[in-house]
């Protein structure tokens, strides 16, 4: 080996090297339960970093319903509530209405937000609750072992659509985010991803925006994050990211869908 790594590090420290990136203290030391390469970890980290950077940990309550992130409270070093499947935004409504001064967010998967919780999601957005909704869309039910999601793509194979999703049998991929953007109760709606460093940076800005918006009392901020599920998709993590770019992004294009009008 050409370089003694330990010596190299010592040399750089001697030259004044300092930490420019480390784990936020808003994450616990418990290792994530997610599969290697899963986007949940990055999404968790970004939300926790934003809360730390804004200095609002003591005023933030998170809600994690059923899905892969159901035990998110094991990883988030903040106060949190686990909710029943699909009910996250109703729970968040109950928290926010009785604690309007707190920052409240829900963290939901596609099954939770766009299937079993559709009514709660639509009506929370329609009421314009002053909460942030983080919506993790990976087109499959990861926690229960790879079943079809409302957001599964046409032709996409899953354990409950083993021959691929067919629109005449299973319906079409549901882009609830776009529908929600139509509601006057949503203030900020954007679709992001976390598979490249550039996308991670943009996504973090969107998450920050979603929290900042809560100070304005102008309605729901919804950040959809399109992520991979390499286990559910039966791929390696790098393959999954490539597949996501080629297949998920055309169906769920990244970018802002509804941005606050500048006054």
């Amino acid at each position: 080996m050409a370089v003694d790594i330990e010596q190299y590090k010592k040399d750089l420290l001697a030259q004044g090297a300092e930490v420019v990136f480390s784990k936020t203290k808003n994450l616990t030391d418990t290792p994530f339960s997610y599969c290697g390469g899963c986007g949940h970890g990055v999404a968790h980290r970004l939300i926790m970093e934003v809360i730390e950077e804004m200095g609002i940990t003591a005023d933030t309550i998170g809600v994690a319903p059923v899905g892969c992130a159901v035990i998110a409270y094991e990883f988030w070093n903040i106060d949190a509530v686990q909710a029943a499947h699909g009910r996250a935004t109703a729970v968040a409504t109950g928290i926010k209405r009785t604690n309007p001064e707190k920052f409240v967010f829900s963290y939901q998967g596609d099954g939770d937000l766009a299937a079993i919780g559709t009514a709660e999601t639509v009506h929370t957005c329609n009421r314009g609750e002053n909460i942030a909704i983080f919506f993790i869309n990976n087109g499959i039910y990861g926690m229960t072992g790879g079943q079809m999601a409302p957001t599964s793509l046409i032709g996409m194979r899953s354990s409950t659509a083993p021959y691929g999703r067919q629109h005449d049998v299973h319906g079409y991929p549901l882009s609830l985010t776009n529908l929600l953007a139509e509601l006057p109760g949503t203030y900020y709606v954007t679709r992001q991803a976390v598979e490249t460093a550039a996308h991670v940076r943009t996504c973090k800005k969107a998450i920050r925006q979603a929290f900042e918006n809560q100070k304005l009392n102008k309605g729901v901020s919804l950040v959809e994050i399109v992520t991979n599920c390499n286990s559910g998709w039966k791929m390696t993590a790098p393959q999954a990211n490539k597949w996501m770019k080629e297949n998920m992004f055309p169906q769920y294009p990244l970018g802002d869908i509804k941005v606050p009008k500048t006054e």
């Binding site: 590090k9 990136f21 997610y34």
Partner: peptide, 11 residues
Amino acid sequence: LVCPDVVITVY
């Protein structure tokens, strides 16, 4: 930034 398990500290 892309590490899902927040394994990496950068100097």
